[in-house]
Amino acid sequence: MIRVLLADDEAMIRAGVRAILGAAEGIEVVAEAGDGREAIELTLAHRPDVCLLDIRMPRLDGLRAAVELSRVAPDTAVAMLTTFSEDEYIASALGSGAAGFLLKSGNPRELIAGVQAVAEGGAYLSPSIARRVISHLGAAQLGRQTTARARVEELTAREREVLSLVGAGLSNAEIARRLHVVEGTVKAYVSQVLARLGFKNRVQAAILAYEAGLVGAEAE
């Protein structure tokens, strides 16, 4: 069972997200918070597998809450709830420790898939968010497509393969099954890829994989 903490200052949003997740098999919302500070307190109390954070909240916004959670509750995966008007916040959040970016108005299936992916150690961006990040923030965050491809070329063939699967949102366990290796080997490759690229988290790596054109055939 994936245990989720939901943090959003709008009760209607919380009710909608709770209903979607509650209808999904294997997911349980164990607590709700109305601001970032409360989200941290409840995370420490309940130790959920996933914390869903609204980006803009009172007392402590989702970005600062995500940074704090990565320090005090590293075993809890963090995913951000965003809207189309928050591109600049998404750029900042890339370094916050968040493993997923989910659109509030997106398809409910994306919300469920995102929670499942980050709970299993993967990274997830709603497809529409990924396109917007690459289109509007790619040059500032990761360089142009040619630069991204040049960076990827510095990796070994196996590292590029792992990067492409990270970009497709697969967890370490799923990558291990795809490549017919043990999960520990995948963890080592992911850590190696992040270190070589100078990234802090899988989301940054996933965006580079999109930018470099790696996500496609490997994700089929």
Results as ranks from 00 to 15, higher is better:
residue 176 A to D: 08
residue 178 R to S: 08
residue 175 I to N: 09
residue 155 L to N: 05
residue 93 A to L: 03
residue 82 T to N: 06
residue 110 E to C: 06
residue 93 A to E: 00
residue 152 V to W: 04
residue 83 T to S: 13
residue 153 E to L: 01
residue 162 V to T: 13
residue 103 L to A: 09
residue 114 G to T: 07
residue 149 R to G: 13
residue 152 V to I: 14
residue 87 D to T: 09
residue 179 L to D: 02
residue 148 A to I: 04
residue 116 Q to L: 13
residue 80 M to V: 01
residue 100 G to F: 02
residue 179 L to A: 12
residue 164 S to A: 15
residue 176 A to I: 10
residue 98 A to D: 02
residue 89 Y to F: 14
residue 146 T to A: 15
residue 104 K to P: 03
residue 73 A to P: 02
residue 154 E to Y: 00
residue 111 L to Y: 04
residue 143 G to T: 02
residue 76 T to K: 03
residue 74 P to G: 07
residue 116 Q to R: 15
residue 125 L to V: 10
residue 131 R to C: 08
residue 158 R to E: 08
residue 122 G to C: 06
residue 167 G to T: 12
residue 122 G to P: 07
residue 177 R to W: 08
residue 87 D to G: 03
residue 87 D to L: 11
residue 166 V to A: 03
residue 169 G to A: 10
residue 93 A to H: 01
residue 98 A to W: 06
residue 126 S to V: 07
residue 85 S to Y: 11
residue 142 L to C: 01
residue 172 N to G: 12
residue 174 E to G: 11
residue 128 S to T: 08
residue 90 I to W: 04
residue 119 A to I: 02
residue 168 A to C: 15
residue 120 E to L: 07
residue 86 E to D: 11
residue 110 E to H: 15
residue 149 R to N: 00
residue 163 L to I: 08
residue 156 T to N: 03
residue 87 D to P: 00
residue 134 I to W: 05
residue 118 V to G: 06
residue 81 L to C: 01
residue 150 A to Y: 12
residue 91 A to S: 09
residue 107 N to G: 06
residue 86 E to C: 05
residue 160 R to Y: 02
residue 149 R to L: 07
residue 165 L to Q: 12
residue 164 S to N: 09
residue 88 E to H: 10
residue 151 R to F: 11
residue 127 P to Y: 09
residue 132 R to G: 10
residue 158 R to F: 01
residue 153 E to T: 04
residue 97 G to W: 00
residue 168 A to W: 07
residue 140 A to E: 14
residue 166 V to S: 03
residue 77 A to E: 00
residue 88 E to C: 01
residue 136 H to R: 13
residue 142 L to N: 01
residue 103 L to P: 09
residue 98 A to C: 08
residue 144 R to N: 14
residue 121 G to V: 07
residue 78 V to L: 05
residue 94 L to S: 01
residue 77 A to Q: 02
residue 116 Q to H: 12
residue 118 V to P: 00
residue 128 S to P: 09
residue 108 P to S: 04
residue 135 S to I: 00
residue 137 L to H: 05
residue 150 A to K: 15
residue 138 G to D: 14
residue 130 A to Q: 06
residue 173 A to T: 05
residue 77 A to P: 03
residue 177 R to Y: 03
residue 87 D to A: 11
residue 104 K to S: 05
residue 133 V to Y: 10
residue 75 D to E: 09
residue 95 G to M: 01
residue 78 V to A: 00
residue 181 V to I: 15
residue 176 A to F: 09
residue 138 G to K: 03
residue 148 A to Q: 09
residue 117 A to K: 05
residue 108 P to I: 03
residue 72 V to A: 13
residue 157 A to C: 00
residue 168 A to R: 07
residue 117 A to N: 12
residue 121 G to Q: 14
residue 128 S to I: 13
residue 94 L to C: 06
residue 153 E to Q: 14
residue 129 I to F: 09
residue 73 A to V: 05
residue 141 Q to K: 08
residue 96 S to D: 01
residue 140 A to Y: 06
residue 132 R to W: 03
residue 73 A to T: 10
residue 130 A to I: 14
residue 112 I to V: 15
residue 137 L to W: 09
residue 125 L to Q: 10
residue 120 E to C: 09
residue 106 G to D: 11
residue 76 T to F: 01
residue 91 A to R: 07
residue 163 L to E: 10
